[in-house]
């Protein structure tokens, strides 16, 4: 995709004369939410390194990045892989505040995690403004389909009732992972990319930029949903 000659949108043209960056790179804050053990870290690891490893429970929040190239823009996903453990719930809003994309993950072989995902959703709905965040319901561990406790239809129904997008994945086998990330990328760019103040631009050398930001709230700078 990088080979395609990009049709650069207005803002990026300013930068197109800097040699290394023919396309604009926008920052996308994406948060993974869900119960402990549904595979959030495994999904994140797939997104970033396309690897699978058995992981330990995440502590606090892990921050990873991955750049996705679309035809006319690059999106730098800043992935916040949160801990599913309850003790971190009080700080989780810190991580999902101002997210552009939220992946609400459950384990298709554990109904409890699906119920829990709905609680997360309710929590999330208190904080986000429709149109500023793209939410995906992700049924993970699709490889455990023989122990399935949540049907595809149920997932789809919840998603369509609440205006979410839906996909089933397997971090173990890698099934649907890149599809998911690409779909999120397209959707986020479609919904937010062209909006004024929707996505901020990623600076290769955010040195000075960050310096300015430090004085204000670093989270509000990349998103329109304030605290």
């Amino acid at each position: 995709m990088g080979e395609q000659l990009p049709s650069v949108p207005g803002r990026a043209q300013l930068h197109s004369d800097t040699l290394n960056r023919p396309v604009q790179t926008l920052r996308v804050k994406m948060v993974l939410l869900g119960s402990s053990g549904v595979g959030k870290s495994s999904l994140a690891l797939r997104f970033v390194k396309n690897e699978f490893r058995s992981t330990s429970p995440t502590i606090g929040c892990a921050y990873l990045t991955r750049v996705v190239h679309l035809s006319n823009v690059s999106l730098r996903f800043e992935i916040w892989d949160t801990a599913g453990q309850e003790k971190f719930h009080s700080v989780t809003p810190l991580y999902y505040r101002g997210a552009h994309a939220v992946l609400l993950v459950y384990d298709i072989s554990k109904r409890k995690t699906f119920v829990r995902a709905q609680l997360w959703l309710r929590e999330l709905e208190k904080h986000y403004i429709p149109g500023s965040t793209v939410i995906w319901l992700v049924g993970n561990k699709e490889d455990l389909a023989q122990n399935r406790q949540v049907s595809v239809q149920e997932g789809e129904r919840l998603a369509s009732d609440r205006g979410l997008f839906f996909m089933e994945t397997s971090a173990l086998s890698g099934d649907q992972i890149s599809e998911l990330l690409l779909a999120v990328a397209h959707r986020v760019y479609e919904c937010l990319g062209t909006q004024q103040g929707g996505l901020s631009e990623w600076e290769e050398y955010p040195f000075i930029d960050l310096h300015h930001r430090d004085t204000s709230n670093p989270f509000s700078s990349c998103c329109k949903v304030g605290p």
Partner: peptide, 18 residues
Amino acid sequence: NLIGASSAFQAGEIWTPI
């Protein structure tokens, strides 16, 4: 001990209350 106990630390950057 916290650093040693979590292999997840190797995946990226961690930000956690402690």
